[in-house]
Design a protein around this nucleic acid. Structure first.
Length: 293
DNA sequence: GGTTGTCCTTTAA
DNA sequence: TTAAAGGACAACC
């Protein structure tokens, strides 16, 4: 608790555009709330008490897209395009690159290791997890790491940090948690700045979950930037074509959001079906990827 | 759009 | 080991 207080008083703003997210979030909410009568830029701007040009600037800086283009990028139509016709071969193709050894999983270049079932059963017992809050392009980011690598990444809107922390701590109740912003800070720059995505220094992540969950997450890691798959695609990929619904549950339990790109999993129709940290954020991330492709 | 069918994981006896 | 509950689904009114 006092840990939180300390965090609040000394936020580390690693990403300069982090504060833009609050504006962007509200724009997205407005757009999707009444998408039928597409509000004009002027209408949105006045609602937020900003000038249209100012809003345009913030938006473009954040997304790499104008509000209008962003709007396009978040439509059902565009989602279907992400799914594409050739998404299955794509999965197959990257398959052999996959699980053995440090490969090019994820454009972020991730090496991962999974916890053993025994470690999972211990519910994090014997594990020391260091954590810290940092601002990110998608709101406050809660970063968690063990000495073996990144183990958790969660999001929270301003003022809701405690809820996110509770949520994450509930997953591994027996672990020991130590607030340590200095230790977690470097991950933020590493993860959210594409310039730092390279294979020279693969990002180490630790997947803590059941066997099934880990298989699902590994499958997600193979989805390239700017692409998307359906839940049934993932089910196919792990060799259990009828388990799409269980896949959904596993995707939802993903502890390292963004890095494990659970936002690139869509319903078969291309509809965004759900997101643990809020649908708005899923839209934001997808739109951001469209603008930073 | 809502509603139902199905099937697999999880969790708790 | 078994049983019950329930899903970020998908298909079908």
């Amino acid at each position: 608790m006092n840990a939180l207080a300390k965090i609040d008083s000394s936020p580390i703003d690693v990403t300069p555009d982090g504060s833009d997210y609050e504006t962007v979030r509200r724009v997205i909410e407005m757009i999707t709330l009444d998408y039928r009568d597409q509000p004009s830029l002027e209408a949105i701007a006045s609602e937020l008490g900003q000038s249209p040009t100012q809003l345009q600037k913030v938006f473009t800086r954040w997304a790499g897209l104008s509000p209008k283009a962003f709007l396009q990028a978040v439509t059902l139509d565009h989602a279907k395009r992400l799914l594409g016709k050739e998404e299955l071969p794509l999965l197959e193709a990257s398959y052999e690159l996959g699980l053995s050894g440090p490969g090019r999983l994820h454009d972020l270049f991730v090496t991962h290791e999974a916890m053993s079932p025994g470690e999972w059963k211990a519910r994090g017992g014997g594990l020391t997890i260091r954590y810290g809050f940092h601002s990110s392009p998608f709101g406050q980011a809660l970063v968690m790491a063990t000495d073996r690598g990144l183990s958790g990444l969660a999001f929270a809107d301003l003022g809701c940090e405690q809820a996110a922390l509770d949520d994450m701590m509930r997953r591994w109740p027996n672990a020991e948690y130590v607030p340590d912003q200095e230790m977690t800070a470097p991950y933020v720059g590493r993860v959210f700045d594409r310039a730092n995505w390279s294979c020279d220094q693969p990002l180490k992540v630790v997947l803590i979950g059941t066997d099934f969950q880990v298989r699902v997450w590994q499958s997600l890691l193979k989805i390239p930037f700017g692409k998307a798959v359906t839940y049934s695609d993932v089910a196919n990929d792990i060799g259990q074509p009828t388990a799409s619904r269980a896949v959904g549950a596993a995707v939802g339990a993903n502890p390292i959001s963004f890095v494990v790109p659970c936002h690139r999993a869509l319903g078969k129709s291309g509809a965004l079906t759900g997101y643990h940290w809020g649908l708005t954020r899923k839209r934001a991330i997808l739109g951001w990827e469209a603008g930073n492709a």
